[in-house]
Each structure stands twice: as C-alpha cells, then as structure tokens.
Design a binder for these strands. Structure first.
Lengths: 230, 230
DNA sequence: GGATTGTTTGACCGGAGGGTTAAAGGATCG
DNA sequence: CGATCCTTTAACCCTCCGGTCAAACAATCC
C-alpha cells in the first residue's frame, strides 16, 4: 500500500543511498520519488510544524499532484513517521568515539564537532526533531523512552567509568549530554536567532567553527580536561 | 477595538498585576478575561504552534465562545502578538547583574540561575518563543534584529571589558550567551525529552537544581572563573 | 429613565485541508 | 497480444477553521 509500512519486505541489495542500478524501472523511480517527497516533506514540516504542514504543499514542492503523494504515503502521519525515522538514525549514530578506553578529551571534542557538523549540514532535520519534542513528542514517545534512553544510559556508563578512573571531573553524565545537545543543536534549531544577533542573514562557516571551538573549550575545561592534541 | 492595539490609553493606576480595585466593573472584567485568554492561548500555541492552534480551542480553554474571543482579539495573529509581547519582557529583563564592575563569577552564576528558574516557572512561555524562532520567526523579526541584538551587544561589551581587565578568559561573549541560553532553555523547551531520558514523567525540583549547579560549574570553570562565594 | 456605548453569543460564510474515488495510462509477464 | 498489476491524476467529499454578523443584553452617563 504505502510502500513504507514495513509490512512488505523492501527490495534487498546493496544499502548505499544511491543504488539505482540493478533495480527495475519501477523500484528505481519509486526510490527517486520517495526521496524527493522526503526532502520536500522535511522542509515543510520544519518550516510549519506537523499541523501547519499541508500535504498539498509538500506534493507541490516534490513536483507531483497531491493524490499521487497520498498514493505513496497513505496519511500525513505516515509521511511524518518516515521523515522522523531518518532523523533518528542521525541521532543514534553519533558519539561512537565515546568508549571506555578512549581519551575523554578527544572523544568529547569529537562528539561536539560531530554535532556541530550535523547542525550545519542537516539543520532542517534537526528542526523537525526539535519541533516534535517541543510539542510534547506525541508521535515519538517510544523512541525517547526506549532507544534514546538506552543510548544515554550506555554512554553515561562509560563516562561514569572515566570518572571512576579519575580521567574526568565528577559530573553528572546525563546532564552533560543535555548540555552538549543543547549547545550544538541551538546552531541548527535557532540559527535564525543566532544569525540575527550576529547581524547576518544566515550563519557562515566561521560561525560554526568558532562555536565548535568555544563549546569544546568551555566544556572540556569545565570538566577538568585539557584540549586534545589534535 | 481589540483593547490591545495600544491606540487607546489603558486606565492608569498602580501597575501591579492584581490591581482589581479602583477600576470600573468593565475594566476589571476585561483584565480578568484578557488574562485568562492569554493563559489559554499561551498553552495552545505552545502545544500546537501558531498554525496548529485554533481560536476555538483557545476560546474553549478560556471558557468563552469563539465569537467572544474574537471580540477581544480581532485576529489570531493579534492574540499571538499579545502573548509574544509578554514573553519578550521576560527575556529582556534578565541579566541585570551583568555589569562592568560586578564580579563575573557571581553575575554569570546569577544569570544562569535566573534562566533555569524561568525554564522551571514559565516553560510554556519559553516553548512559544522557541516555536516562533524554530519556524523562522516570521512574526518576530524586529524583536530579534533590534531589541535582542542591542541587548546582546550591550551585555557583550561588558564581558569584553571583563576580558580586558583579565577578570575572565578570552572567550567570545556572544557565543557564551548562546551557550547559556541553550543550556538553560533546553530544560523548558525539551523537558519532555530530558524527562524521558531521566525515566520520569516530568522534571522535578532536584533536576533543575542539579542542572543549574552543573551548568554553572562547567561554564564558570570553562571560562576560567572560580565558583562564587554564595 | 432613556440614550449610548460596551459585551455576549449562536448562526453563518468562504476557503482550505486531509483524504478518497474512479478512470485512464504504463509496465510486466505469460 | 492480452491479462494483470502498478502508477498517475482530476474531481470530489467532508470537516474544520478563521472570521463576520446581527440581535440580544448589560453597564454607564446625562
């Protein structure tokens, strides 16, 4: 039906994002269309929120009639979930360097850098996520109460271990994550505000660089760490 | 018309919030009704965003028919501006302790504490603000490009002065403000996420206390400051 | 008290939005 | 080629929404 409900196995094969070859004409066109819908939907959801987004506007931006969009995604909610799933991936695939035997300063600096990169490269995805959480995460509960909670607990345990070994000040790891998330994502979610204060129309590369540098500096120093060699 | 357009002088008198006496029956009831509308509107705007909010739901929550709400506020946009104005006040009235001859550690600690208090006491207002900025601040530009920018420049100049006198590390003041804003407001805007990760239904007093303590600790230490005596 | 002005409310309007239908147009496979 | 399945699209339906209206009601002023 919707091609996304997950109840029928997707065509398998190499999982790289641009594997057009070795698929039939239809599968190929479906993949292209779904991608363009996703892009349009992400933009519109980010700009107007779930309620404000209209499927007809998404369809128009994706370059197809509304009825056709509803052929690929039965409901606006289905489409929204599809967009969210992608964004959740981004989230959970960060902080891989935070490992028990890593150097805390290096690992945290890397994580902060990664998060700032995301804010710069995928601000729209970040805004859809922020919007969802801001409005009470009604379509999102399981992710936060399970996947994300587990993620934080795993990573926090590592930081506790660092603390136990005296490699880092005694801080609360969870609140440290809240701090890193907020300081970095603010450059995506509230970039309009930051740009306005900086007197720009939009943020430029050096803004992100300075942000990453200063956030890293303050958080590392604040946790009793020295800047990594890199 | 709307009683809020500002084109007719409000009844003057003491400006405390609860000055019901010494007003006619009408002015008193108008004040009460506007307050209840504001509260309802703030909630609904925070929950659903501007587009998602319906005037009939706001009216219902305020306990009056929709047509009556439209008697007090001609359009949804008018009502929204009314709500936003209140929230902007909150913003600009913070950080009064950041003054040239104040002790940086004390002043920053106080500011952070004040911001966390706001996150705890007025999370709904904070969310309306966040939502507006998140969606490009279409109804908000002047505030950010003028009032807020000026505010930041004034406060940043003070911090520059601190730096010049060697009272604090050489950091970028504006990005320091972005850091303080984001770390504190995240406890209002994304409290659902934080609560979920902490395994709670909602944040409790000790969460805010720990947050304030740790944010203050990390930022002060990160800026080369010692915790204030207080 | 009577005129005037401010307030309340149910009914109404035009428009937009999410979603459906049905019929036509292509691809695929035997 | 013909049957089957997938895809496209205009037209349609129903609900909800922001906003208006007009008539009733209440406070205020002379």
């Amino acid at each position: 039906m919707s091609g996304v409900g997950g109840d029928q196995p997707e065509i398998d094969g190499p999982q790289t994002d641009a594997d057009d070859s070795s698929l039939g004409v239809r599968a190929r066109s479906r993949a292209r269309i779904e991608a363009s819908i996703r892009k349009a939907a992400e933009e519109v959801f980010a700009e107007m929120g779930f309620e404000g987004a209209s499927t007809s506007l998404i369809a128009k931006r994706a370059g197809l009639p509304k009825a056709n969009l509803h052929y690929y995604f039965k409901t606006k909610n289905d489409l929204y979930q599809f967009v969210l799933r992608d964004i959740i991936e981004l989230w959970l695939n960060t902080a891989q360097e935070i490992q028990p035997d890593a150097d805390p300063a290096t690992a945290l600096a890397h994580y902060i850098g990664q998060k700032i990169d995301l804010a710069r490269d995928r601000p729209i995805a970040s805004r859809v996520f922020a919007n969802e959480v801001l409005h009470g995460a009604p379509r999102f509960d399981r992710f936060m109460r399970q996947d994300l909670k587990d993620w934080v607990e795993r990573k926090s345990a590592i930081i506790e271990e660092w603390i136990g070994r005296g490699k880092i000040d005694q801080i609360d790891p969870k609140h440290l994550f809240f701090m890193i998330w907020s300081t970095t994502q603010t450059y995506a979610d509230f970039s309009i505000q930051i740009a306005a204060v900086l007197g720009r129309r939009e943020l430029i590369e050096s803004d992100y660089q300075l942000a990453a540098k200063q956030i890293t500096h303050i958080i590392l120093k604040g946790c009793g760490l020295k800047a990594p060699d890199a």
